[in-house]
């Protein structure tokens, strides 16, 4: 009787916390919609929304409407999507590699995608579809290289995956440096450098439609596999002895995470820390079971990115690259949580 009671209590607490996180996400998104360089009064805001939803034209606030619906809204949606994607990919790979210090770029996706983007900028001198396509393609290529190298070694053990990832990462980092070296110092080099720092500036609805399908596919796939991921997080032999063949599921999880991460890098550049920190925080909030951890990471990751992007837009007159801000906010936050709660685990 007692055990039943506590079980209900537990599922209750997990079920109670998820809607709370959703509220945090919605709240930060709506606040962020009203904050920015273009100031508007709450009266104007009401008017803009009123005319948008009733279809009554000509409130004389075309500029405000444009800012809200064409500039801020897509940017916030993209930030939420990227934050959610990087966080769930990080949480999944941490589980898969049985190591809470793994981040989504462990298998070389980010360095590959970064190289692809740099190559695109070098060839086209701009950030167009070719750059995005190169970035996505090289993100996938790098992970395929990592996987095939791990397979060549025969035993597909965790360690050989990680070592192969380190090798591929360093090769692509070197190639990126090579491109920077030969790039035009006046326009290409700054473009590459800023792109690699990560930013949501200049994102439009087109970008949203570009990344929505692959990221949704990845997130839904990972969410479907979330309980099975627990078994894989015990290690290869343990999974086998529990009657589960880990091979197919492992490849699926790696591919889904890769698609997500490559899509994120494609529109926003390289944004570190989110995929590492958010899953940690969620483990504290909701527990280590991936059943709750993956949905929680998705939602909190989205909220975190929306908030950080809002800071990036508003803190100082010039926009701060978001990769810098996530590291500046994420790292101390992480250090704080880690030192505070170290004794507990």
């Amino acid at each position: 009787m007692k055990t039943n009671h506590s079980k209900e209590l537990k599922t209750c607490s997990v079920a109670g916390k998820l809607p709370l996180l959703v509220l945090v996400l919605l709240f930060s998104a709506s606040v962020s919609l009203f904050l920015g360089r273009y100031n508007m009064s709450s009266g104007e805001l009401m008017q803009v929304f009123y005319s948008k939803f009733t279809g009554v034209p000509g409130s004389g606030l075309d500029m405000a409407e444009h800012v809200i619906f064409q500039v801020r809204l897509p940017r916030i949606l993209i930030a939420a999507l990227v934050g959610a994607g990087l966080s769930i990919a990080g949480a999944s790979l941490q589980g898969l590699f049985q190591n809470p210090l793994v981040s989504p770029d462990i298998l070389g996706v980010c360095s590959g995608a970064g190289f692809g983007a740099a190559l695109g900028i070098l060839l086209t001198s701009g950030i167009g579809y070719l750059t995005a396509g190169f970035s996505f393609a090289f993100g996938l290529v790098s992970v395929f290289l990592t996987l095939s190298m791990a397979r060549v070694k025969g035993e597909s053990q965790t360690l050989s995956y990680i070592l192969s990832g380190i090798i591929v990462t360093s090769v692509f980092l070197a190639l990126t440096s090579l491109i920077k070296y030969v790039a035009d110092v006046n326009d290409q080099l700054p473009a590459i450098t800023f792109w690699l720092m990560g930013s949501f500036a200049n994102t439009e609805f087109d970008d949203l439609w570009l990344i929505l399908p692959p990221i949704s596919l990845g997130v839904i796939g990972l969410l479907l596999l979330r309980w099975r991921l627990n078994i894989l997080s015990l290690g290869e032999e343990e999974a086998y002895s529990l009657g589960v063949n880990p091979q197919a599921t492992r490849i699926a999880i790696i591919l889904l995470s890769t698609i997500i991460t490559a899509s994120c890098v494609m529109v926003s550049g390289i944004i570190g820390w989110v995929g590492l920190v958010i899953p940690h925080i969620c483990r504290r909030i909701i527990g280590v079971n991936h059943n709750g951890l993956l949905p929680a990471s998705t939602i909190l990751g989205g909220a975190f990115m929306v908030i950080v992007d809002c800071l990036a837009r508003n803190l100082i007159a010039a926009e701060i690259p978001i990769g810098i801000l996530t590291a500046l906010t994420g790292a101390p936050f992480f250090a704080f949580i880690y030192s505070r709660l170290k004794g507990e685990s």
Binding site: Q98, N230, S233, R283, N289, S345
Partner: peptide, 8 residues
Amino acid sequence: SFSYSVRD
């Protein structure tokens, strides 16, 4: 690596 509950 991850401290699952006994029931989990």
